[in-house]
Design a protein around this nucleic acid. Structure first.
Lengths: 219, 219
DNA sequence: ATCTTAAAGCAACAGTTGTCGCATTAGTGG
DNA sequence: CCACTAATGCGACAACTGTTGCTTTAAGAT
């Protein structure tokens, strides 16, 4: 979050302010990568950024503010979901990406989730990021529907959550090591349920129609 | 966690120590209920328990230690999963319990999960609690298998995680309001996938019936 | 170039947090 | 009832955290 709204007249988005912001955000990421969330202090960030403590406090208030800014910056990339040609392939690849980002130690995403518990501002930023990511992933479902792999009234969000939630649950909440094939397993289960109409938008459960096309599982 | 192992000779588990512990743990729960996790300070807990600050620091070290003790105490109850007579009913009822405990504000379970991010000791205690709860829930799957609702080689833990993860994901991580029928939806999807053999312990995916339609995925 | 003024630097300060040595209390065993 | 000592109470203290007023720097405009 850039405290001074960038467009306001009288502001100075150029030169130093921008430089300081970049230095500080970079320092935050570096500290997160080295010491994780617990090790993240305003003091260390300021020192690493080569900036005075008071400056960091004034612009970002607290650790939550710093992370909120990092989160917002993270949402500005051009990430898109994998496109492998099949629903199961897409979901599996997506899960593998998720798994990879969560198992590295220390994991920046993990740290950001932790931060969301401590700071309301970080929580809001985190929510925006989730929303953005899941929205982009809806393309996966739309393609599957277009291919005839899924019923047209499939609730994309619900399917995506069902597919990805187990990995987050185990790696973030349960903190359990996951089996190597966990990504495929979760993707398979979700795809299977979706094919059977479990995520139809109509209030009725699994539709009466037979699961359309698509092999349900790889070899 | 009770720092002095209860059985050690020379210790004094009776009278005052036990009383102080009870007062402090009760104070922690009360503070959690009133101010949530962020509002939980050693100072406030000590004051509420009518105990000196130094005592709390000495016995529990930090906030994480306090919550670890609360978590361990929580695992000593006689909770068991619902038994409704069907797999879908059990999973749905379970999800509704979960949902209920997570939506009340402030939610003690949420606070405990938040704590697990901050303190290694709390994280370990949390892990023990999860393990205990999921282990107890395996009864649900065993009953379903006995009824013939599920293939005998169903991996109970995987099924349970698939069924419950979406709710945790939305309520804890995404912090999104969930549809009233979310509990049933997630339970249905998991039960459906499980019935099709998606959680079989053999390495092959869904077993039993051939993939419906048999059409190959374009790609 | 020069002026104006956001924004950063600086240092002193108050509030909070965690630690420590010592005095006091109260279980426990004789 | 008494002696022993683990555990708590107490208060002083250092370290850390965040705030504030003032000074200095440098971006942007004339």
């Amino acid at each position: 979050m850039t405290p001074p709204p960038e467009g306001t007249p009288g502001r100075r988005p150029g030169g130093r302010s921008a430089r300081v912001r970049a230095q500080v955000l970079e320092a935050v990421r570096a500290e997160l990568g080295e010491h994780g969330y617990e090790g993240l202090t305003m003091e260390a960030v300021a020192a690493r950024a080569g900036v005075h403590r008071a400056t960091v406090y004034r612009r970002w208030q607290d650790v939550g503010g710093l992370l909120a800014d990092v989160l917002d910056a993270a949402g500005e990339d051009d990430w898109g979901p994998p496109d492998t040609g099949s629903l199961l392939g897409d979901l599996t690849a997506l899960n593998e990406e998720i798994q990879e980002s969560l198992v590295v130690q220390p994991s920046v995403p993990q740290a950001l989730m932790a931060a969301a518990f401590r700071s309301a501002r970080a929580a809001e930023a985190q929510q925006r990021l989730w929303e953005d990511r899941y929205a982009r992933c809806e393309a996966v479902v739309e393609r599957a529907v277009a291919r005839g792999e899924l019923p047209p009234d499939t609730d994309a969000r619900e399917l995506l959550i069902a597919a990805t939630a187990p990995l987050y649950h185990q790696l973030v909440l349960l903190r359990t090591p996951v089996a190597p094939r966990a990504a495929v397993r979760a993707a398979t289960a979700a795809a299977l349920a979706a094919g059977a109409g479990a995520f139809g938008r109509s209030e009725r459960g699994p539709a009466g129609r037979p699961p359309a096309g698509g092999r349900s599982v790889p070899g």
